[in-house]
């Protein structure tokens, strides 16, 4: 039954996300996020989008998260970072943002619950239809996305490069 599977996956997704936002150690948080993403992939599959579920697993959980994990490992953020995080995340700090976000959630829920349409089955959308739409009416957006990715690559390369330290010749002697 789709309902049960959905509720289990949704529960895991929410639980894993709550774990993500409460962790002090970044590594743990990332791994919980991977769990959360996988649960969301299940939900996507249940909503009749198997191709999207696959992309979620491959691109999000696979590529992006792995990129983040490697990045964190590269910076070598260990116990100090976790201690710092613990110091910053005092319970007091949570109160106001949570209150604000609960109001926002309340409004979202209220808006979503305005849907009074009769219960119907989810509709399956084939990957083929997606492909046709993507390279049909949305072709221009696809081109733009390509440009965006290109810019991301160039930007990442440019920003990530370690610049050589250049000092003014008058200051060179003072550096010791």
């Amino acid at each position: 039954m789709m309902g049960t599977a959905f509720y289990i996956a949704a529960f895991i997704a929410i639980l894993a996300t709550v774990m993500v936002i409460t962790r002090y150690n970044i590594m743990h948080a990332l791994l919980y996020l991977v769990v959360s993403l996988l649960a969301v992939a299940v939900v996507l599959y249940l909503y009749g989008a198997p191709f999207m579920a696959a992309l979620e697993v491959i691109v999000y959980a696979g590529a992006i998260m792995v990129l983040l994990i490697f990045f964190v490992m590269m910076l070598n953020l260990g116990k100090e970072s976790a201690a710092q995080e613990k110091l910053w995340l005092k319970p007091r700090i949570w109160i106001f943002p949570s209150l604000l976000c609960i109001i926002l959630l309340g409004e979202l829920v209220f808006l979503v619950l305005q849907n009074h349409q009769p219960v119907s089955e989810v509709k399956m959308v084939n990957p083929k239809e997606v492909g046709i739409a993507l390279f049909g009416p949305y072709i221009m957006a696809v081109e733009l996305t390509g440009m965006l990715l290109m810019a991301g690559i160039v930007g990442a390369y440019h920003l990530g490069r370690q610049k050589e330290k250049t000092l003014h010749r008058f200051l060179e002697n003072d550096q010791s």
């Binding site: 943002p97 604000l100 976000c101 926002l104 409004e107």
Partner: peptide
Amino acid sequence: ILSVVLGAVAILSVLIWRIY
């Protein structure tokens, strides 16, 4: 970010109040 959220809350509040 807090200002953005505050703005979002305010706009949604006004929207809900006006429509529903």
